[in-house]
Computed example of a mutant assay.
Amino acid sequence: MGSSLGVLNDGTVTDEIIGYRREIADLTQRIKNRRLQVLGLYGTPVALVLLALSWAGLKIFVWLHGDTPSAVNGICFAGIVVLGLASAVQFSVEFQSEHWEDSGKSIRALKLELSLTEERHVLEIRRRTPPPQDRQASYKEKLPSEIFRLRQDSRRYRRMHLVMQWLLFISSAAISAVTAWYDPPQPAKGALIGLGFTVTVITGAAGYFKPRERAFNLQQTADSIQQHVTALELGIAPYNASEEKLNLELFATTVERLRAEQRMREQQLDQPQQGQQQVI
């Protein structure tokens, strides 16, 4: 009976903590939505006024002694009508709470509500903190998503590197081909300028962002973490101690060290070349 009550209490605590996290996620999304609402609420009338002033300015400073082109008049008139309707709709919806969840509420109030919810969440977790062994076991269960994220980022940077390299190869080859085809290269001057600009931009971007190095580091970290996860599950070295507590402690320490090394490598890649040499 006592054990069943303990399980029930643990389930209730877990549901409460999950409820706090859901409330935090909901408030975060509500703040984003409210920012968009406020931006549209105040930005649309400002855009309407600016468009009207621009239309009047064009008439005064450009076509004062002549007729304004019908295309300009049509575009400006259509823009004013659309912005006017959008402003009217947004103002009407703002004062009808059944359409917008947080209509009439400031972003500051939502941020305060989010801060209080996060504080309650922290206090609840601190009051019911599980022992280190349980936290280390749950830490192991969170790692598959981290490994997936690292590999996904690695694939993204690898694709970026491949696209850059192919564009660089094609543009470099096209410069030589266009130069050899036209003699003198006057008809293809625009193409040569564009291709040379592309080569310069890709070379500079590849040297600055270093997608190949980032992809390699991310994949290496993901593979290392996966190797330690497999070793822990199979109970092989270095996680072959008789006590599970020691294995979990060593596992958490090792994975955190790998993640710290990954962050350090990312910081080194973000630094200029001179700064990297000094760090090394």
Rank of each mutant, 00 (worst) to 15 (best):
L168H: 13
V178R: 01
G207Y: 10
E98Y: 12
I202P: 00
L195E: 07
E113Y: 00
L110N: 03
R108H: 10
L85N: 12
S176Y: 11
V199E: 02
E146N: 06
V93Y: 09
T203N: 02
L150W: 06
R126N: 14
L116W: 06
S154A: 14
Y208D: 09
Y157F: 02
E119G: 10
S154E: 00
Y208K: 09
D153M: 11
E113H: 01
T129K: 14
R156S: 04
A86H: 05
I170K: 12
F169R: 14
L110E: 00
A180W: 07
S145D: 15
S172Y: 02
A188Y: 03
S106N: 14
K140G: 10
G204N: 03
F209E: 05
S145L: 15
V199K: 01
L83W: 01
K105A: 09
A191M: 15
L150R: 04
L112Q: 08
S145N: 13
I125W: 07
G190M: 08
L192V: 08
M164D: 11
Q186K: 10
I175T: 07
S138R: 15
S172L: 01
S103Q: 02
L168C: 09
L192K: 07
D134A: 13
E119M: 04
T198P: 04
A173L: 06
E94R: 01
L116V: 07
S172N: 06
L167P: 03
Y139F: 15
L195P: 04
R135K: 15
A88C: 10
V122G: 09
P144R: 03
F148R: 08
R126A: 15
V89L: 11
G84A: 10
F91H: 13
Y208F: 08
A180S: 14
E141R: 03
T203G: 06
M160W: 01
L112M: 10
G104E: 12
L192Q: 09
D183M: 10
P185D: 08
V178N: 05
L195W: 01
E113T: 04
A174R: 09
T203D: 05
E101Q: 09
S176T: 15
R151V: 04
L192F: 07
G196E: 02
A174G: 13
L143Y: 01
L168Y: 11
W100A: 02
F148V: 09
I193G: 11
F95I: 13
H161C: 07
A173F: 02
D102G: 07
Y208H: 09
I170H: 11
D153N: 15
Q186V: 14
K111H: 08
K189A: 15
W100D: 02
Q96S: 13
L83F: 09
R158H: 00
P130I: 10
G194P: 06
Q133P: 06
R120E: 11
L162G: 09
L114N: 05
S172G: 10
F209D: 03
Q133T: 12
R155C: 03
P131Q: 12
E94A: 04
A180F: 08
V122I: 11
Q136R: 15
